[in-house]
Structures are given as C-alpha cells and as structure tokens.
C-alpha cells in the first residue's frame, strides 16, 4: 500500500504552489510595467495605479498610502508585510506551507525555497534603486523557475505533485486574466499607444516572442486576446492553464465535481468570441472567468481539503425527509 496523501498536506502543497506562482508573476509584473512606462510620454493616465487594479489591492492600498507613486506602489507590491499578496508575503507564506509539509517533498526543496526567501528578503529590504530593482525582481523570478524546474524533474509526479501544479495553474490563470483586464479600462486617449501596451501585456506573460512567431500578425487587441485566451499551446494562456488543470484533475481520485467545473470553463472560453471583446464587455468577460476560477477553487477545496467525511445518520434522515 503506498503512502496516502493527507487532505491537510494536499491543501498546504496546493497553497504553496499558488504562493510561489504569485510571487513570480508579481515580480514579473512590476518589472515589465516599469519597462513599459519608459516607452510612454511622461504623466500618462496609465500610471502605477494600474498595478493596484491588476492585483485587486486598491482598497487596502488606499488605507496605507495617499499617493500611487512609483515608490509607494513598488514597495507595497514587493516587500510590504501588510499586503498579504506582496512578493515577500507570498514567499513567506510559501515557506510556512513548505515547513509543514517538508517531509513529503524531496529533501532539497527546502533549500530552494529557503534560498528564494533569503534572496527576496535581503534584496527587497531598504531603498531600491531602479537599476537594482530590475536585478532583484529578475532574480526572484529566476529562482522560482529554478524551484519549479527542480520539482518538475525530481519530485515524484504523484498526487502531491498534482496539487502543487493545480495551485500553480489556478494562480497563473488568475494572473493572466487580471493582466488582460487592465486593457479593458483603457480609454480612447490611449489609442496611439495601444500597440506598446499590448506588447507589455504579452511580455508580462513571457509571450511576446511566441505571439509573433505563431500569430504572424501585428500586435493588436483582437489577435492578442485570441492568443492569450484561447491558444492552448502557449503556457501562460488562459486555455493552457485550464487544460493543465483538467489534466491534473484527471490524475486525481474522486475528481468528478472539480473536473465538471473545469470542463465547463474550457467550453466557455473556447466558444466565446474573444476577438470582439473590448472595454466594458472585456471586463465583464474577465470577471466571469474569475468567478469561475473561484468556483473551481471551491470545488477542489470541498472535494479534497474540507470535505465532510461522513454524513451523520441524523442529517441523512433530514435530507431524505426534505426530498
């Protein structure tokens, strides 16, 4: 009889997967955004506030800072312990989850996570010049990739592995839709700079080069939307994330309910006319995707993490009566 995966362990590994992914995508997001701003005229409407919208943290940010200055925003997203989704908070949370399941993963994993944590902590503390910032953020992203690469080639691809990947992919899908969503807020004044901004979107997702190779089209809204929503072979596309989630779920026992949710999501995105989406319509579509991601998380959690083991006899009788 092989070792069984405890619900508690599965849950912590899943969250570890989410936090690691979140740390990387946030690092990447800041770096690409800073780069993009350099291509735009000074004092454009598209400023640092956008990042608050993407990460869904405008409300909390407002309680901590008056201005969305570059300094405030970067600090908030990168190292602020009061922001539970900051890079440093995410890595610390990944560490904490890792600590409690350390014995269930390859021994060296802890060293990778520990190294990532130490690097981020020392790199993000104190004043962060623009040039150093690029270096630190890239260092974080690279270390996360190293960790994922190590796990991918050394961790047994068992149930625990699937939970790690579910965490990665659900977080990745979430970030992809958030990044796309920013474009839905752009007004007509942005038009001359549209291509630059779409390029920024693609680069945040490591997708600019492959977009050009695959779509063989100029960088324009409709084609980018199709690429990022529906193109299955592009690792950070929404469709690819959903496929990975589906394949992962298929490898797990009792996966009926979450698999049902996931399959409906795949149909939903593949049947949508994403090329035509813009403005409020785009925002609404993204919103729908995020609600579905929430449903998928809930289905995973209630199937594997918090399911009620057995229905007590009394409750069963009540149910029967009600019907």
């Amino acid at each position: 009889m092989k070792l069984q995966t405890l619900s508690r362990v599965a849950e912590r590994i899943y969250w570890m997967g989410r936090y690691i992914e979140r740390a990387e995508s946030t690092a990447r997001l800041i770096a690409v955004h800073a780069d993009l701003l350099m291509d735009l005229p000074v004092r454009r409407a598209l400023d640092w506030r956008v990042l608050m919208d993407i990460t869904g943290s405008s409300a909390l940010f407002a309680t901590l800072h008056d201005d969305t200055t570059e300094r405030n925003v970067v600090r908030y997203l990168a190292s602020d312990a009061r922001n539970p989704a900051s890079i440093l908070s995410s890595i610390a949370n990944a560490m904490e989850n890792m600590r409690t399941v350390r014995d269930t993963m390859p021994r060296v994993t802890f060293e990778y996570v520990n190294d990532l944590h130490l690097f981020a902590r020392s790199g993000l503390q104190g004043p962060l010049s623009r040039s150093r910032r690029v270096e630190v953020l890239e260092g974080i992203a690279r270390r996360v990739q190293q960790l994922e690469g190590f796990l991918s080639s050394n961790m047994t691809h068992d149930h625990k592995w699937q939970f790690l990947r579910l965490g990665n992919h659900i977080e990745r899908a979430d970030m992809t839709t958030r990044i796309i969503d920013v474009r839905s807020g752009a007004g007509s004044a942005d038009e001359p700079f549209e291509p630059i901004q779409w390029r920024g979107v693609l680069r945040s997702l490591y997708a600019l080069q492959s977009y050009q190779a695959i779509m063989q089209a100029p960088v324009e809204g409709p084609a980018v939307l199709e690429f990022l929503f529906q193109y299955e072979d592009q690792p950070r596309s929404y469709a690819s994330c959903l496929n990975s989630l589906m394949f992962g779920l298929r490898r797990l026992p009792r996966s009926g309910p979450p698999l049902g949710v996931c399959n409906a999501m795949i149909r939903h995105v593949q049947e949508a006319d994403v090329r035509d989406l813009e403005g409020a319509g785009l925002h609404e579509f993204v919103d729908g995707c995020q609600v579905q991601l929430g449903d998928l998380h809930d289905a995973i959690a209630s199937t594997y993490f918090h399911y009620v083991p057995r229905v007590p006899a009394r409750a069963r009788r009540k149910e029967a009566k009600g019907q």
Partner: peptide, 10 residues
C-alpha cells in the same frame, strides 16, 4: 480510527 486523505477516509 481513520485518517482524512484526498481519497477519502483510510
């Protein structure tokens, strides 16, 4: 005594 696993109670 059972333990809670992703496969159910064991």
């Amino acid at each position: 005594v059972y333990m809670r696993t992703i496969e159910g109670l064991v």
